[in-house]
């Protein structure tokens, strides 16, 4: 699913953010990525969702080298990845329904064609009644649930979550974690970056620790 071999990554001519990173995550795994602020967690996730390329080593996601993509093949591979961010990244001018439907439209689906799928997902995250509302009327936890629904609407093989509980209270964090655990039980591979040790202890997933200087310990 994810294979990193001796990966090094830097922004421009700056210092290495990731150094000699080796990582193997298999199909159906659940892994937590931890590390201090600035240790490179977000950079590692950006590499895995194909926004960056390593200057050293080899990085394969879903069996394909991240450096070998064309814009088209990168877009097609991203449809098999679900990405969730701490800051939600919802589009405020679209309704909640349209936000969740967006990946399907981007994949060439007609608007309104997958209504049942979208409604089922909104039901799953407990927001079916808010489908017509706009994101700016939601709380942080509700926004993150919409973002999770959007991430999984294309039934991705791998979910990359970058501090998804960072902007919500502990109760909501637990509720969000349950959604990820449920997805993992259904066979989706999940890589979940977080600072929250209690959350990790509650889940029982394996931890990957990113140390300052961008080295991994598993």
């Amino acid at each position: 699913m994810i294979e990193l071999e001796n990966v090094g990554l830097a922004y421009g001519n700056g210092p290495d953010i990731l150094q000699n990173v080796y990582l193997h995550i298999g199909r159906g795994d659940l892994r937590f990525l931890t590390g201090a602020s600035g240790s490179g967690k977000s950079t590692l996730l950006r590499l895995l969702f194909l926004a960056l390329q390593p200057h050293q080593g080899m990085a394969r996601v879903l069996g394909k080298d991240v450096a070998s993509h064309t814009p088209q093949s990168r877009a097609r591979l991203r449809r098999k990845l679900g990405v969730v961010f701490q800051d939600f990244r919802l589009l405020d001018h679209l309704t909640i329904f349209e936000n969740v439907e967006l990946p399907l439209r981007a994949a060439g689906g007609e608007p309104g064609k997958h209504t049942n799928d979208v409604n089922d997902l909104l039901d799953w995250v407990g927001l079916k009644e808010r489908a017509r509302d706009f994101p700016n009327t939601l709380s942080g936890g509700e926004k993150q649930r919409v973002a999770i629904a959007r991430a999984v609407v294309t039934k991705p093989e791998l979910i990359l979550a970058d501090e998804p509980t960072g902007n919500v209270d502990p109760a909501m964090a637990k509720r969000l974690l349950r959604l990820f655990l449920e997805l993992n039980r259904l066979g989706t591979t999940v890589l979940f970056a977080t600072h929250d040790k209690h959350l990790i202890e509650r889940s029982g997933g394996q931890v990957i620790h990113l140390m300052p200087g961008g080295r991994l310990s598993q």
């Binding site: 969702f49 877009a75 990405v83 919802l90 967006l102 981007a106 294309t154």
Partner: peptide
């Protein structure tokens, strides 16, 4: 820019 970034993240091709 933010909308374009989200579109790229959810797998929209440049053509879309």
């Amino acid at each position: 820019t933010a909308i374009i970034e989200v579109l790229e993240l959810v797998g929209a091709e440049p053509r879309f």
